[in-house]
Design a protein around this nucleic acid. Structure first.
Length: 582
RNA sequence: GCGCCUGUAGCUCAACGGGAUAGAGCAUCGGCCUUCUAAGCCGGUGGUUGCAGGUUCGAGUCCUGCCAGGCGCGCCA
């Protein structure tokens, strides 16, 4: 509807303003907030006033005069200081209902993405512990973004980057091993910085069952290193010494296997968790495999050959400053190990080489410092800086009993996504996550979320859908039926204020989806659905359907049908179900 | 100290890439079920949009400064 009106206005605008008309999006058109200002309103005249150096009111008058003849518009008014207010012709909105019926599940979709290939990377939590409620936010937002991009004609991959090559995996392996030692000897010697969540104990139990690690080996124990005193890195150094000791005691191969197995099991758990949450990835990219395939060396070699990187104090540096970053960065340490930064450049470069036009990363806000760096790396490798887009998601602050709770995987102090899912359900959790903009700090009040889960607006929206399903069921029970053709034939009877409001809301889905996709803002869909449900419930309470005269009943059934379709389509974009009964 | 994000009703958040009288939910007060799901509808209370300037016909939205909170500024990952 908006598009059709926009085309009409555009024709008029081109006549009045020539090339200036092209600077306007959708001809400045939007649905009027207040019905006294028409169904749709455009601020085009005001936007053009500066460029044309004329009064907005005069421009508006010219635009209106230049409007081509059409079936859509009933009347147009100009309001100070230059709004063009448009009232739709009877039948214009009603015809949208047939369009909705015809497009079905595809209503709201468009092809404006022009098959642009977008690789969406999100969650990518380190496989060192179960997902917590913060990761849940990333999962919900990232997946909805992917759905929105798919709906707008992009080719989308969902990818999870698995950091399984770094020191953290050794720390995980160590943590598990120490719990095994603890079981066998009864001596507790758990160091600061090791993972202390309950799941570590479970992994230790499983490890003892499945790997050739005997209780004897554990009892024999290992040579405990001395705890060094002083210095900031004390805990980390001690941890490294412990890892060394464990390697000595178990043998390199066995220790690595423990670490790898633990990481694998954690990842397995994460994968299942996300699947239950309705999130499925096309690819789980292992960092270790990337290393094994030589991708990182390849990148580094190329940078070195082209004379971009340089040596300084034994390390290999990347001159990020040259590309606008605040300082230069190490890619290979003095001891020969490459940094996280190095594998990130290689990883993103590899994604480009796999054919992605756009790399869309959904990252935690703590990564913002690293965005310029990676972009610089891509640029140095000859990629356009614009091929990387990063959406930062702010932290979830967990509140329990009104108190802020620190969340740390290492400390084992966190609320898991799984427990949230089990307590409030996938639909409520996803809708809650996605109804706040990612760049907003989110206060997650656990007591509130769990106790008053029925206050979640998701139920308000789902209830509308259930009511429609029930209505159509009742229709069948009464031996009634209707066809879209018959309904369309009587659609002109839909003139009640509530019916106009509902039809206006329904017609807004396509523009809402496009806007949400362009702005990478799934919360726009969530808020749209609430206002759509509002329009529906208002209509439902004011307009009887089954007891209306047959012709009106038929028209209203068509409206209800369209309402159900749009609710389903919208909820689907958020990964939320549309129940037939509640 | 420097950089990024944020500040809107008692609480949690909207406000459609500057638009018309800043809106929802929860909480609170009052009405509506002999008829399609009351997880609903209708109405009321509640705001100096952190503060101060500026740009504009028009600012919650853009710019500057201050205040407050979160995050970052490793040869950590």
């Amino acid at each position: 509807m908006k598009q059709a009106l926009g085309n009409l206005l555009d024709q008029a605008l081109r006549r009045v303003a020539g090339d200036h008309a092209r600077t306007l999006r959708h001809a400045g058109l939007e649905q009027a907030r207040d019905s006294r200002n028409g169904h749709y309103a455009s601020n085009a005249a005001m936007q053009l006033a500066g460029k044309l150096k004329r009064k907005p009111v005069d421009i508006a008058a010219d635009i209106v005069a230049a409007l081509p003849a059409n079936q859509l518009i009933d009347r147009v008014e100009i309001a100070a200081p230059g709004f063009i207010n448009i009232w739709l012709a009877p039948g214009a909105l009603q015809s949208e209902l047939q369009w909705i019926a015809r497009r079905g599940d595809a209503y709201g979709c468009s092809d404006f993405g022009a098959k642009r290939r977008v690789l969406v990377e999100f969650v990518s939590a380190n496989p060192t512990g179960p997902l917590h409620v913060g990761h849940g936010r990333h999962a919900a937002i990232g997946d909805s973004l992917a759905r929105l991009l798919e709906a707008t004609g992009h080719e989308v991959w969902r990818e999870y980057y698995v950091n399984d090559a770094g020191r953290q995996l050794s720390v995980l392996g160590l943590s598990v091993w120490l719990r095994m030692v603890e079981r066998a000897t009864g001596v507790e010697a758990f160091p600061e910085g090791a993972y202390r969540g309950e799941y570590i104990g479970n992994l230790a139990g499983r490890m003892a069952d499945e790997l050739p690690v005997s209780a004897e080996a554990a009892r024999k124990g290992m040579a405990w290193p001395d705890k060094q005193a002083g210095g900031n890195g004390e805990a980390d150094r001690y941890l490294d010494a412990l890892i060394e000791a464990a390697r000595e005691c178990l043998g390199d191969a066995l220790f690595s296997e423990i670490a790898r197995a633990a990481g694998g099991w954690v990842l397995e758990d994460i994968r299942e968790d996300l699947e239950q949450f309705g999130v499925r990835f096309d690819n789980w990219q292992s960092e270790r495999e990337l290393v094994a395939a030589g991708k990182i060396d390849e990148c580094l070699k190329r940078l070195e050959l082209e004379g971009i990187t340089y040596r300084h104090e034994g390390a290999l540096w990347f001159p990020a400053e040259r590309y606008g970053d605040e300082k230069n960065r190490v890619v290979v340490r003095a001891d020969g190990r490459s940094t996280y930064f190095a594998s990130d450049i290689a990883y993103h470069y590899a994604k480009r080489k796999r054919g992605a036009d756009l790399l869309l990363d959904v990252l935690g806000a703590d990564h913002h410092g690293y965005v310029n760096r990676v972009r610089a790396g891509l640029e140095a490798l000859g990629e356009p800086p614009s091929c990387l887009e990063v959406r930062l998601v702010q932290f979830v602050a967990l509140l329990r009993g009104g108190q802020r709770v620190a969340m740390s995987t290492r400390g084992g102090e966190f609320e898991t996504l799984r427990s949230l899912r089990e307590e409030v359900g996938v639909d409520a959790a996803r809708f809650f996550y996605v109804s706040r903009a990612g760049e907003q700090h989110l206060d997650f009040d656990l007591d509130l979320a769990k106790r008053r889960s029925s206050d979640n607006p998701v139920y308000y929206v789902q209830y509308a859908h259930a009511r429609i399903a029930s209505l159509l069921g009742k229709m069948a029970d009464r031996g009634l039926s209707f066809s879209m053709d018959e309904s369309a034939a009587h659609a002109s009877l839909l003139t009640h204020r509530r019916e106009i409001d509902l039809m206006l809301a329904l017609a807004r889905l396509p523009e809402t989806v496009e806007q949400a996709a362009v702005q990478r803002a799934p919360q726009i869909v969530a808020h749209y659905l609430i206002s759509l449900a509002q329009a529906f419930h208002g209509w439902y309470n004011h307009c009887k359907v089954l007891d209306a005269e047959p012709e009106l009943r038929s028209a209203r059934l068509g409206l209800a049908q369209a309402g159900g379709q749009v609710l389903r389509n919208g909820l689907g974009l958020l990964g939320v179900s549309a129940p037939r009964s509640m």
